[in-house]
């Protein structure tokens, strides 16, 4: 604990009380022929019980890598090279294979980025729920099946589809089935990696609505990953904005929305239409995300930033700093503003 306490003052705290999940200084790299891709660099955040933390950022900024690191399903060439991931008082990175097997799904489950590929094509949907249940609970096949029917009902799939195979379901139903599997053991936390990107807007809204209801009913926390900020603003309690493997800003959704501190957040927000907000002119973000093998010096966003401070932003790496009780951002402009006021 002492190792992280110095930075604790600067780390983004959760809404209240002891966090359910606490990630500290997480570093993940992909060892490729081109060199080491630092996909996640010193990322820290907490999620507390029944909270939704949204994670947003452009494609390739490391969102899925964080999700996979937390569930410890990264495979070579990905390596966790530093940091700590605590779930309540257990150290996820220190678990043995057996501990990990027992921990998974019962406490923490994950909905993959592509529901199309997350289901085993040769097993029925029911069988894929049943085997998750039976891997963790000493129940008979019939009991597990009864629970599977219940779960399908909960996510809005008619129970007569329990013996259907994935290819017999529509995209929306498959996504719901994957969510049903994630709920199978009533976990305390579910990681959802872009659960609705492949779906059309109507189905997308329905499923988001259902996830919200399920969360209220079962009381799990969600780490919700998307690149659609407008979705997050409505759905999550807090939002983390990632840029090039780092956390650029994190804070309560409304604050991020009303008072973004990081120029990248501002840009990201302007590049999406809000579902309920006023119609504004959409601007893309000029330039493209940096190569993570050789990230830019100083602030990683400076080459694309139109308000960069000459001299300082190229040189000095900005640390996350508190701008309001629960709001943190990593930008030198905050100092400037403070200095001015």
């Amino acid at each position: 604990m002492s190792a992280i306490s110095p930075s604790a003052a600067k780390t983004p705290e959760s809404t209240s009380g002891q966090p359910l999940l606490s990630v500290r200084n997480l570093e993940v790299e992909y060892r490729t022929k081109r060199g080491r891709v630092k996909a996640v660099d010193h990322v820290s955040f907490d999620i507390s019980t029944n909270e939704v933390l949204g994670l947003a950022g452009e494609s390739g900024c490391g969102k899925s890598t964080i999700a996979h690191a937390v569930t410890r399903i990264l495979k070579p060439p990905a390596y966790i090279t530093g940091g700590q991931i605590m779930f309540k008082s257990t150290d996820i990175l220190g678990m043995s294979d057996d501990e990990l097997r027992a921990f998974r799904w019962e406490h923490l489950s994950i909905v993959f980025q592509s529901a199309m590929n997350a289901l085993n094509p040769v097993l029925s949907v029911g069988a894929q729920i049943i085997d998750a249940i039976q891997a963790h609970m000493p129940v008979s096949k019939d009991e597990a099946r009864a629970r599977a029917l219940e779960l399908l009902d909960v996510v809005g799939i008619h129970s007569n589809r329990v013996d259907s195979y994935p290819h017999q379901l529509s995209g929306g139903m498959r996504q719901r089935a994957v969510i049903a599997i994630a709920l199978a053991l009533n976990p305390e936390m579910i990681i959802m990696d872009e659960p609705t990107t492949a779906l059309d807007v109507v189905v997308q809204k329905q499923i988001i609505q259902e996830i919200r209801q399920l969360k209220d009913k079962f009381g799990f926390s969600i780490l919700f990953i998307t690149h659609d900020l407008s979705l997050l603003v409505e759905f999550s309690d807090r939002i983390g904005i990632m840029y090039a493997g780092e956390l650029a800003e994190i804070g309560p959704s409304r604050e991020i929305f009303d008072n973004p501190q990081h120029p990248y957040t501002v840009r990201l927000m302007n590049s999406f239409p809000t579902i309920s907000g006023p119609r504004i002119e959409l601007k893309g973000i000029p330039g493209s995300p940096p190569d993570l093998v050789t990230p830019p010096s100083g602030c990683r966003f400076h080459p694309r930033c139109d308000v960069a401070i000459a001299g300082r932003c190229q040189e000095e790496h900005p640390e996350l700093q508190q701008t309001s009780p629960r709001h943190f951002a990593a930008c030198h402009l905050i100092d400037e503003r403070k200095g001015n006021s």
Partner: peptide, 8 residues
């Protein structure tokens, strides 16, 4: 990967 994450 999901099967592994399920703890099978």
């Amino acid at each position: 990967t999901m099967a592994q994450a399920k703890g099978l």
